[in-house]
Design a protein around this nucleic acid. Structure first.
Lengths: 157, 157
DNA sequence: GCGAACCTACTCGGATATGGGATGTCCGAGTTCTCGTGG
DNA sequence: CCACGAGAACTCGGACATCCCATATCCGAGTAGGTTCGC
């Protein structure tokens, strides 16, 4: 099980967009260059964020991406779901139904293995949903106060 | 992000091995046939469980797999880790270090995005570790009392 | 001088290659049981 | 009848194909701004 690395890119980019502010749009090329990443692929990740409604995208000169909501209103869960998709990691294929003696009685309830796995995954989602971009942003500003200025400087038009 | 489907197979197989008991070994072929799954691939999953020490494997006629511990001593986390490996789903590539102005001061602390993701994944692991095979087994026996007998009958030599 | 139309440059957006890991298959090493043979 | 040994069958274990999705790239649609031409 491996999470797409685009998640990491998206999270860092969202933080950077929070620092540059919603007034000026930042291009995918510039965000990618800041971390020396392939620009076209970074663009793909930002597209996913745009589809999820987390960022606004404007084409043309002066265009780029802007955060669509306040950092307090964006959770880490939102970003992960935007990149990874809404599906669970564990997907019950209901193999129990393929047994030769899958009687209606034994299939009455839900698959309990699936339930247990879902319960764990729900705990994961809850923890992600409990943390907002603003939380992480504030932590970074406290432990590394010069990072926001650096980001603004390198991402400014 | 997608978990290997071998996890589902392994969990069901562990339950079945719990029902057949540790006295008689059950072959991979028989476990696979119970769910109409490819035998060789099922064998691969059981091998992973054996490497992790969750099951004993004995070759030759009359051989097969037996649960290595009591169901109370095997958590869902054990099974998932055996199949999926020990690595985290989210792997911080430390892209923050690739910024042109990655000063030692700003890199002093750990990556806070990584920390947040780890916190969520830890919650997932804790929830998995909190549930044992015995828990799930007991739930199944309560909601579908005839399943254990079916398993024993179809998996008996 | 001013306005409008054109043109260029820029950016996103989706369609298109590529690579690595999960999925699926196959054969060999080792063990156990069986069967035959000899005492 | 019993002991023994050779053989066969069975099972795991790992090496070998195959397929699919994440990764990576490229080009087209659309837009904004600048430029030039006409009035």
């Amino acid at each position: 099980m491996r999470m797409a690395e685009g998640v990491e890119w998206a999270l860092h980019s969202c933080l950077n967009l929070a620092w540059t502010g919603p007034e000026k749009a930042v291009t995918a090329t510039r965000l990618a260059a800041y971390y020396d990443l392939p620009a076209a692929y970074m663009n793909k990740q930002l597209q996913a964020l745009a589809r999820a409604g987390l960022v606004f995208s404007t084409p043309g000169p002066g265009g780029g991406f802007r955060l669509a909501r306040q950092p307090e209103q964006i959770t880490l869960m939102d970003v992960v779901a935007a990149i990874e998709g809404p599906e669970d990691a564990f997907r019950c294929a209901e193999i129990r139904k393929r047994t030769p003696d899958a009687s209606p009685s034994s299939l009455r309830g839900p698959c309990l293995i699936d339930q247990s796995m879902r319960r764990a995954e729900l705990a994961w989602r809850k923890e992600l949903a409990a943390q907002t971009l603003a939380d992480v942003k504030e932590q970074v500003e406290r432990t590394a106060p010069d990072v926001p200025a650096h980001a603004r400087r390198h991402l400014a038009a």
